[in-house]
Amino acid sequence: MLIGALVCAATSAFAVEPAPNGITLPEGYRQWQVLAVHQRSDNTTLRAVLGNDAAVKAVREGKTNPWPDGAVLGKLVWKGVKHDRWETALAPGDFVHAEFMVKDSARYPATGGWGFARWVGMAQKPYGTDANFVQECFNCHQPVKDRDFVFTHPAQLP
C-alpha cells in the first residue's frame, strides 16, 4: 500500500517557529512513510506526500474518506530540475516548502476538520502573516471537498 519510508539526510539544527495559527512543525516528520509523489507541471515542482502513523493506518485500511482525526499529511516540495546524467528525468532541486494538514474535526470545523500549516525554504519560515492564511489553503482544496479536502491519491503497491 505504501511506497516506503523517507529519510532525509538533513537535520534541523535550529528552532522552527509555529505557523501563525499555532500549528507546530511535526516532530519526526522526516521519518514518516511516503504515501504518494506528485509532479506539478504548472510550477515545475516535485512533491513527496508523507503520513504520520494515523494516516498510514488509514491508508492501509482504506479509510481515507473521511480521514480519521489524528491523521497528519505532510508535503515536501522541491523545484524540479533536469537530471545531470539522465536526459528525460527530473531531480529535486532547491527546497521550496513543507506543508502539513492536521485532521482534528473539533479544533478545525471551519476548514473541513483540517488545520493547515506551511514552512518556507530551508530556513523553515512560517507562511502567512496571521491565522487567516488558512483560508488560502482551504479555498484551494475546495475542488476535492468530496474527498475530505485531500488531493492525494495514496500510491498502491502489489
Rank of each mutant, 00 (worst) to 15 (best):
A55T: 07
A55H: 00
V56P: 07
K57Y: 05
K57P: 03
A58F: 00
V59C: 11
R60P: 03
R60M: 12
E61Q: 12
G62Q: 01
G62K: 00
G62F: 00
G62A: 05
K63N: 13
K63V: 04
N65L: 08
N65K: 06
N65H: 04
N65G: 11
P66C: 10
W67V: 07
W67P: 10
W67Y: 00
W67N: 08
D69M: 02
D69F: 00
D69A: 03
G70V: 02
G74L: 07
K75V: 15
K75N: 10
L76E: 13
L76W: 04
W78P: 01
W78E: 02
K79P: 03
G80H: 02
G80V: 11
V81E: 12
V81W: 01
V81L: 10
V81G: 03
K82S: 13
K82Y: 00
K82Q: 13
H83I: 13
H83P: 04
D84N: 12
D84M: 04
W86R: 15
E87K: 15
E87Q: 13
E87G: 09
T88V: 14
A89P: 02
L90P: 02
A91D: 07
D94R: 10
D94N: 12
F95W: 13
V96C: 07
V96A: 04
H97F: 10
A98S: 12
F100Q: 08
F100D: 03
M101R: 15
M101G: 12
M101F: 04
V102E: 09
K103V: 11
S105C: 06
S105I: 04
A106H: 03
A106S: 12
Y108A: 06
Y108L: 03
Y108C: 05
Y108S: 05
Y108Q: 04
P109K: 01
P109G: 08
T111E: 08
G112V: 02
G112M: 04
G115C: 02
G115D: 06
F116L: 10
F116D: 07
A117T: 07
A117N: 09
R118C: 11
W119D: 06
W119V: 11
W119T: 10
G121Y: 09
G121D: 07
G121S: 08
M122G: 15
M122F: 06
A123Q: 13
A123M: 05
Q124N: 11
K125L: 12
K125M: 11
K125P: 01
K125F: 05
P126N: 09
P126G: 11
P126W: 01
P126Q: 08
P126I: 08
P126V: 08
Y127L: 14
Y127D: 12
G128Y: 00
G128C: 10
T129F: 07
D130Q: 06
D130L: 05
A131P: 12
N132Y: 02
N132A: 15
F133W: 02
F133L: 06
